[in-house]
């Protein structure tokens, strides 16, 4: 019998994950209820579980002192810059490693080793090498966020159907056009999947680095508040970080939904 040699698989390979729009806000309802109960039952002076109203006061104090806004800005810059660098670098390395067997053999073990290094352990090294500054933060966060992008891009390249390349050759597309019109769009879902995994990692590591090194940002502010026993303020800042991550995840989902609006689901 004529078994189809290759099942028409590309449609499946291009299928982006579900969740193509901003998550509905009503999912936050249980959290709201919990906070309400906390507010009603908590006591003002508790050093461990200060009720939400004290969080608001703490945040308000920071806002009025003019420290909250720049801290959010710094965290945002570190996070955004690191994610962009991780995406570009990770996609490039992933594509090279995925396309060239030799590169894979030469770099594979080192990549596996580097991937297993906990990013938090990188902080002292990076601080020694680069110093306690913004560059060090970006370097550490990039190092943490690059792996999902790199590994997904590599998998994407390996899953490319050779028919796509034959098509380009048979239609006399230039190397550049083949990359731009076929390979890049075909790899986009894999790269974006990597970004979706990398974004929350980047945020967590950004905050962690800031808490550990006190070099600016929300994390440094959290560490400072904690040292001064301003527990309401600590909770307030953690809430801000949570909202931040909620917005970031939502934006990545929206970006994916927009990019794949014309692709099979």
């Amino acid at each position: 019998m004529t078994a189809p040699i290759t099942a028409p698989a590309s449609a499946r390979a291009h299928r982006p994950a579900r969740g193509r729009s901003f998550p509905p806000l009503r999912g936050l309802l249980p959290l709201g209820v919990l906070l309400g109960i906390w507010e009603l039952t908590g006591s003002e002076g508790s050093p461990y579980f200060p009720p939400p109203s004290t969080w608001a006061r703490g945040l308000n104090r920071l806002w009025e002192a003019g420290t909250l806004r720049p801290a959010i800005g710094e965290t945002l810059v570190t996070f955004g810059l690191a994610l962009v660098v991780a995406t570009l670098l990770g996609a490039m390395l992933g594509i090279v490693v995925g396309a060239l067997r030799k590169a894979d053999r030469a770099l594979g073990p080192s990549l596996e080793f580097a991937r297993a290094m906990p990013p938090a352990a990188m902080v002292p090294i990076a601080a020694l090498l680069i110093g306690y500054d913004e560059k060090m933060k970006v370097a550490v966060v990039t190092f943490a966020a690059i792996w999902p992008v790199l590994l997904n891009s590599r998998a994407g390249v390996r899953a490319l159907d050779p028919v796509l390349l034959d098509t380009a050759r048979s239609l006399h597309l230039s190397w550049f056009d083949t990359m731009r019109k076929l390979i890049a769009p075909a790899l986009l879902p894999a790269v974006l999947l990597g970004v979706r995994v990398a974004a929350p990692v980047a945020l967590v590591i950004t905050l962690l680095v800031e808490i550990l090194t006190r070099v600016g940002g929300l994390g440094a502010l959290i560490a400072l508040s904690q040292r001064n026993f301003l527990s309401g303020q600590v909770f307030g800042l953690i809430l801000v970080a949570g909202l931040f991550s909620f917005v970031v995840n939502g934006l990545v989902a929206v970006l994916e939904g927009y990019t794949f609006r014309h692709r099979p689901r």
Binding site: S10, D161, D166, A186, H262, R263
Partner: peptide, 25 residues
């Protein structure tokens, strides 16, 4: 001389409309 592949699904670009797929060459 142009090739026509058995695996049409892998040869067409799902992100392009039919018209733009035909434009490719």
């Amino acid at each position: 001389a142009v090739f026509v592949f058995q695996n049409y699904a892998a040869s067409l670009l799902p992100w392009r409309t039919i018209e733009r797929n035909v434009d490719l060459g």
